[in-house]
């Protein structure tokens, strides 16, 4: 696999398809993002089951440049979502798709988002390296399990998780879709929520961060893994993914032409919650 990625990368440089390539290299603890500017360096590329950062996060830094990206399923879906939101131009991005074998933590356990992954193979790519992999049929068993808990228990869980947060915003920065010029937490006027670690402020952050991902999250899980405090946050975004799918029939990152679900509407949308 690694050889094939390098080969495709080399080819892309040779054919002038890319000026820079974002991929994974050998880090000191695990795979680390690397930025390759000449074809001689493509041998630095690697692929293993620690490549869990979503490389699409870096793409906006290279806007206007022909940028290649080594993308697993979720990364590629984020690229598509960014294109759909007009943050990138399709022709500026060259996707070297890698069917993902699932990412693992340092103990060798597969991550939650990988366990239920529906699109290990990038749905959109310029070149695909390796054999397509079938995903699982996503039915959000973890979300359903959480939903079946009594509301008080759910609130308790939400509060306990939020309490661990130190507001370092690693989740935000690791997310390709968190690209706002000014994040709502940083806004002073209006000041949506207070700084500091009071429970309600932390809850505010977690709720709105998740809300802002509705219809945009590719379920890569980089946010949760980036968290130094091990705060569980995927259960929130996964719920919204499930809702967006059930309510609007939308799955993020499959079609660069499709409008984001909250940027459009249907006259047939359900409205039983309306008085």
């Amino acid at each position: 696999m690694i050889e094939r990625i390098r080969e495709e990368a080399r080819k892309a440089f040779e054919e002038g398809k890319i000026e820079i390539l974002i991929g994974f290299g050998r880090g000191t603890l695990r795979a680390t993002p690397i930025f390759i500017e000449k074809k001689e360096d493509v041998d630095k590329l690697i692929w293993d089951d620690t490549c869990w950062i979503n490389l699409a996060t870096y793409l906006r830094r290279f806007r206007g440049k022909k940028t290649g990206i080594v993308a697993k399923g979720c990364d590629a879906r984020s690229v598509v979502a960014l294109i759909a939101e007009k943050q990138l131009k399709r022709e500026d991005v060259y996707i070297i798709g890698v069917p993902c074998q699932g990412m693992k933590n340092e103990k060798g356990e597969e991550f939650l988002s990988c366990r239920y992954c529906e699109y290990p193979t990038p749905p959109v790519y310029d070149v695909l390296v390796g054999e397509k992999r079938e995903g699982k049929k996503e039915n959000y068993p973890d979300v359903s399990e959480f939903e079946s808990m009594p509301p008080e228990k759910r609130w308790e869980f939400f509060s306990e998780e939020a309490k661990k947060c130190i507001r370092c915003y690693a989740c935000r920065e690791a997310c390709p879709m968190c690209y706002c010029e000014e994040c709502f937490v940083d806004s002073l006027d209006p000041r949506w929520l207070e700084p500091g670690l009071s429970l309600s402020s932390l809850q505010f952050w977690h709720l709105v961060r998740a809300y802002h991902q509705a219809g945009r999250c590719s379920d890569c899980g980089a946010c949760e893994r980036a968290c130094p405090m091990d705060v569980k946050i995927l259960y929130l975004t996964r719920k919204l993914n499930k809702e967006v799918r059930e309510l609007f029939g939308f799955v993020t990152g499959l079609d660069p032409e499709a409008l984001p679900p909250l940027g459009t509407y249907s006259t047939e949308d359900k409205e039983e919650f309306i008085l």
């Binding site: 008080e152 759910r154 609130w155 308790e156 809300y211 809702e243 940027g263 509407y265 359900k270």
Partner: peptide, 17 residues
């Protein structure tokens, strides 16, 4: 548009209890 946003808002608030 509002209807979609509030559907999501509702779902999220109910979900966290």
């Amino acid at each position: 548009y509002a209807r979609r946003r509030f559907a999501i808002f509702n779902a999220l608030m109910e979900y966290v209890g």
